[in-house]
């Protein structure tokens, strides 16, 4: 779990605790059972709205992490994903030497090009 997700969880926990405290205090102040029930329903609605915001926020953070992770995977599995194996009929050692040579010559640009081609 990343710090961003932990932070979202922590902030939401604090907000919920605060909301619950407010609800308890308000209900203690009231004597009318009808009013108490209305406040409870109101707060329940508020908590449900907050939970929706929380889930949305959390999902966004997870998606961001998954995206970053997939980008890393692209690098991790780079050779097998991006570089095709030379055909059997050719001098494969020579082809590999040439291929490696051209990739290493200008590595970052070569990777960019290979990714573009793959996508």
């Amino acid at each position: 779990m990343s710090e961003a997700i932990a932070e979202v969880k922590e902030v939401f926990r604090e907000i919920m605790l605060h909301v619950l405290e407010c609800e308890d205090e308000l209900i203690l102040e009231l004597n009318d059972p009808g009013l108490k029930e209305a406040v409870r329903r109101h707060f329940e609605n508020l908590r449900s709205q907050l939970a929706k915001v929380y889930v949305r926020k959390l999902r966004k953070e997870y998606e961001r992490e998954i995206k970053a992770f997939s980008e890393r995977l692209d690098v991790t599995f780079l050779p097998s994903k991006l570089i095709p194996r030379p055909p059997r009929s050719r001098d494969r050692a020579r082809t590999w030497i040439e291929r490696l040579s051209s990739i290493l010559e200008n590595y970052e640009e070569a990777i960019k090009q290979l990714r573009k081609k793959a996508s």
Binding site: V75, L78, P79, I83, P86, R92, W96, L100, L104
Partner: peptide
Amino acid sequence: PEFQGRILAMALADL
């Protein structure tokens, strides 16, 4: 962090 070794490993295995 560039994982250049993986390219060599792939080439060697392919050979």
